[in-house]
Design a protein around this nucleic acid. Structure first.
Length: 424
RNA sequence: GGAGAGGUGGCCGAGUGGUCGAAGGCGCACGCCUGGAAAGCGUGUAUACUCCAAAAGGGUAUCGCGGGUUCGAAUCCCGCCUUCUCCGCCA
């Protein structure tokens, strides 16, 4: 959520920047500024009335103490019309505030100036690529066939237990999951991230804080009995640690990481692209989060991107890093790098990580502020996050790219975690 | 899930209808004192919105959260959240 001040002070820049995101902001921006003016006016009227009634109340108190009951009762009568006004203004102010809020949440985050122009995925810019393309025989299998062949992932059993999109990992498949989680967590710790293990159900406030609510309500599993939501990503509990928090500039950078299962309803996405591990309702992921000083957040974004890149290198996966164009970016992001790995068995690039700087957009919702040393005023911090990494598509690529006559080869860096170097 | 007791500022803690945004203490910051420090003394010490070109200075709200009663609520009433103790259940 942008702040009204941000919008008002840079009205034209906001409209221009949002055009890059293929968003026509002009009328919304005007409506926001107009509503805020109205809000201020109402606030003033209400405050003046409240000040007046406070004054009278104090007088009444004194009159009663002095035993001047009659004068006190006379003063009481004066408050009747004031109270009616107060009721009216309060209601109008609430309406204004709510409308302003509804308008503000419709406005996407501003893209950073370095974000390329473009409408859709084809316009994304490849910034780096690496890893060796595997040379597979013509009869190479996609991972869902390999999973069956080696009895490591049982999709049908998942269907029986829960439903589609909830696979059962077994044997080496289960061990591989555990190995990857530990590998990612250890790497994150080495890179300076503090490990957390957060709750995987969150309340409404947290859902709102990171922007899943109200816009993506249908994407989360909702536990209606207790009004809790299953997290779609660890970003939600991790970032909400900092809801309503005022940091000092000495606290930067905050670097935290967590493994959690993630739950996504993926309502409406069916078909070929969702086969096997490509798209699941439950999956495992290690997430990294940074809270940064506004002057440092784009540096931090690069740092996070290179960190994710080292993971893919260590896993010997062929990858490419895409800088998303304005039209392909998420609502909340100011700048995003997507990481894709090649799954050679299905000859497809799979997105395995998305690393974003949200600038102050999330911080404004969260009320995550900081104070510069010696400064009285608070300002919004910058938040960033990225997957490091999401497991299923990594597993898909590992299985497909490393298939041999003998079995599936485990990358060197993972062997000490799996305890085996081949799935046979 | 049942019964009872709590939730006050960075922390401790007073306050049960009237100049209470809140005593007192601790902590912290600044100043004085000192050769330097400690102690001592003095001053200051929340957040948000808003008025003002800005500063200074005002106004409003906030005592777990949300409603209500009242001229006036930290204080009374209702609902919710949460902590502690006991019982029940339980990995």
């Amino acid at each position: 959520m942008l702040t009204v001040r941000q919008i008002e002070e840079n009205q034209h820049a906001v409209i221009q920047l949002l055009a890059k995101k293929q968003f026509r902001a002009e009328s919304l921006v005007n409506e926001i500024i107009e509503t805020d003016r109205k809000r201020k006016k109402l606030q003033n009227q209400l405050d003046n009335n409240l000040a007046e009634i406070n004054r009278i109340s104090k007088d009444i108190g004194q009159l009663f103490q002095q035993g001047k009951t009659q004068e006190a009762n006379q003063a009481k009568e004066k408050t009747t019309s004031l109270k009616e006004d107060i009721k009216l203004y309060t209601r109008q102010l609430e309406e204004s505030v709510q409308l302003l809020h509804e308008l503000l949440v419709q406005l996407p985050n501003l893209p950073h100036e370095s974000v390329p122009e473009g409408r859709a995925a084809e316009d994304n810019k490849e910034v780096r690529a690496g890893g060796k393309m595997p040379e597979l025989p013509v009869d190479a299998l996609p991972h869902w066939d390999l999973a069956k062949k080696y009895d490591i992932i049982d999709f049908e059993m998942g269907n029986k237990i829960t439903g589609s999109g909830f696979p059962l990992y077994r044997n080496a498949g289960a061990k591989l999951q555990r190995a990857l989680i530990n590998f990612f967590l250890d790497e994150a710790a080495n890179a300076g991230y503090t490990e957390m293990m957060p709750p995987i159900l969150v309340n409404e406030d947290s859902g709102f804080g990171t922007g899943q609510l109200p816009d993506k309500e249908g994407q989360m599993y909702h536990v209606t009995g207790d009004n809790l939501y299953l997290i779609p990503t660890a970003e939600v509990p991790l970032t909400n640690i900092f809801r309503d928090v005022i940091l000092s500039s000495f606290d930067f950078p905050v670097k935290i990481a967590a493994y959690t299962p993630c739950f996504r309803r993926e309502a409406g996405s069916y078909g070929k692209d969702v086969r096997g591990l490509n798209r699941l309702h439950q999956f495992d992921k290690v997430e990294i989060v940074q809270i940064q000083h506004p002057d440092k957040s784009y540096e931090a974004l690069e740092e996070m991107a290179s960190y994710v890149e080292t993971l893919l290198k260590k896993l010997d996966l062929p990858y490419r890093i895409m800088l998303l164009c304005g039209g392909d970016m998420s609502f909340t992001s100011a700048k995003t790098y997507d990481f894709e790995v090649l799954a050679a068995g299905q000859k497809k690039w799979l997105e395995v990580s998305s690393v974003s700087n949200f600038a102050s957009f999330q911080a404004n919702r969260l009320k995550l502020r900081f104070r510069e040393e010696g400064d009285k005023r608070t300002q919004l911090a910058h938040t960033l996050n990225g997957s490091a990494l999401a497991l299923p598509r990594i597993v898909a690529a590992l299985l497909e790219n490393n298939q041999t006559q003998m079995g599936i080869k485990i990358p060197e860096a993972l062997v000490k975690y799996t305890g085996f170097n081949m799935i046979e």
